[in-house]
Design a protein around this nucleic acid. Structure first.
Lengths: 215, 215, 215, 215
DNA sequence: TATGAATGAGCGTTCATTCAT
DNA sequence: AATGAATGAACGCTCATTCAT
């Protein structure tokens, strides 16, 4: 079972997918990620998946439904849980310091992120053009986790580890720094040579200092 | 003359554009920015510009040439100069501290950025799909300014104001933080309520601390 | 089944054609023959065939492929075999004299030629503009039959029935005379009144005397 | 003055053509001959002629008028006179034998024909699709010269030099043989190697014998 | 469930032609 | 006389989607 197939298995755990359906999803992820949603044709996906054109529409009423069927589970089953899982550890006092939390997050995620990269790319590309995606995103990621994040950030703020600004701002700054790294690394300039380890560490330190109390 | 017309005037200063051509560019910027390059049809642009569809192709051989004709000048005439201009002041010792420089940059640019936002959006959206755009970007922005940025960053590093990591990493962290703010603010969640002043200041402080020497 | 449908049946024997495909080919032959390839639009063919324009392109990637799909089989399945068939008879000594051979050819072909006329017209019209057509023609008609023709001509030359000039020249002179008749009759001046029988006979006599030994 | 320019000078002798007009005609002849009338665009002609698109339509109301303006004079000023000129000599007893006439025709014409070839090619290509061309042809060539040709042929028939078939048939057979040679040589297979002298002579002999009295 | 032929609207582009300059 | 910007209809072709099998 290939790397990508495992991704699909994970994304659609619980849903009974036919063999063809899996192939369609795999092909769609690859194409959407490479050329963007609009620039990808359904016939192209069908060809890459090795199925007839009609088969796609047996499973997904429209092309857009196919897109949402990929990004929806991605948000509910992958992003949210991963964040939440660590929050538990954190809230259970597993990580006394933000640094440990951040580093753990970065460490654990590197492989995950690389695997998820095609879907992340799709998400970032299409979110500006599909209000329903933005809504889903706010509902599944933000709302589900907002309270926990807020609580977490507040706890670190109370410990005096990070500065006293609105938790939402803290989250924004941290997340955009992390995504900024990944976006530069994998989307904008994948052809440059990167010292991944060092850059990851620098990003963590940057966030830490950026959010840390100075005195 | 409207806000947008001035943008076009500025982007294409020196080039003789017919009236219709200006209208085409304006319509293209608006549409590309709203729906993305691929999802925008030339007939749509023509209609919005109030010209015949054939007129577009009299001036631009292909739809892609129209895209490049917008983003090319944007990179050469707007981004690069703006950055360079302040570098001069900085290198002329106008700003003793990074903070002053960053804040000046943020202040001055806010209006500019708001005006350029549609084009920035296009650039961010399309850069992953058009290698020639990435190349142009590297050549015009990076190469033209890389030496100066490096020199600037090094001078601040020598003054002990920012940490000793590769200048390229410094640049990446600062730029993605700035763009991360703008992207969140104007692209991802324009419908949320933002306290622009405060968030801008927080972003600056974040960068400052993130890059500052700690002891 | 109409005359034309039988032509298509014959041209594409062995290939499974859908109903619509046959209609497309019939319409294409008619239109190409009447107005020329370039002056015929695909939408016109679609309308005449009673299918959607998209259907044409489901079966033929391009308009040119449609053209070649008509002319290709025409050359391999119709022209070559017809010529070859009689060569057998000739080589089997069925015709002692060129005259018999020529007359048989003319007789047998009259109906065939009338049926094939539209395709012949297309071939003659388009051959100057499509090198691949010229190549196909040389390969399928010339090469396949050149040896046989040469042999045949030589045998008549040995019998002293026709003059001793290069067989290729013999073939050219005979063929252009035959085609010259058909071209004048059916393409150039179809609206004039023709005494077909007499003109056919005159053409045969002309060739016979033209190629015959004089003394 | 180039070969082609002289052709134009000759075709349009007496008509005052501007410089641009000559260039347009030259470009049109070249393009029509190479790709056919329908497949040639006016913008292409304009570019090749080095004039603005509009200039073409200042001189010729439509594209078709441009075509006719080339072929019309060609028929009235070149074909007819050339034939007629020799007829005079013939009728004045300059050539006692058909052979002399034919050979003289072939000899004199070789260079002329090579120069006229592009226009001949256009004529042959477009005559099937433009009834007015066919009509012009019949009027200018046929009618103007038909009587003379008939008279000429009859005189040779009376001398017993050629067979007693309708003069029209004689003309058809001779002309198609001549054109058949030129068409094979210059249009169908220009890429083959030809022994022009020998083939020309063979063609003459073929016509002579084909039309000659046998006993 | 899966197919793939069929659709017709719409795509990016080219066309012959017009007209103000 | 000549230009070239402008046009809008038509071009060859692709699209997402439907449906009989």
């Amino acid at each position: 079972m290939s790397e990508e197939e495992r991704l699909v298995e994970q994304l659609f755990a619980g849903e009974k997918l036919t063999d063809k359906q899996k192939k369609i999803i795999l092909a769609a992820i690859e194409s959407f990620s490479e050329k963007g949603y609009s620039a990808t044709s359904t016939s192209e996906i069908a060809k890459k998946a090795g199925v007839a054109e009609g088969t796609i529409f047996r499973h997904y009423k429209t092309k857009k439904e196919l897109l949402l069927s990929i990004i929806g589970p991605f948000m509910t089953k992958l992003i949210a849980p991963y964040i939440v899982k660590d929050f538990h550890k954190v809230l259970d006092q597993k990580y006394d310091h933000v640094e440990d939390f951040l580093r753990a997050t970065m460490e654990n995620r590197r492989n995950v992120v690389k695997r998820l990269l095609p879907v992340i790319k799709i998400l970032l590309q299409e979110i500006p053009f599909h209000p329903e995606l933005r809504e889903q995103f706010l509902n599944h990621i933000a709302k589900d986790t907002f309270d926990r994040v807020t609580k977490l950030i507040k706890s670190y703020q109370e410990k005096g580890q990070i500065i006293d600004i609105p938790p939402a701002s803290v989250a924004r700054l941290a997340v955009t720094s992390l995504l900024g790294f990944l976006f530069s690394r994998y989307v904008l300039f994948p052809e440059l040579e990167w010292d991944d380890e060092a850059e990851a560490e620098r990003t963590i330190q940057f966030i830490l200092h950026g959010l840390g109390k100075t005195e």
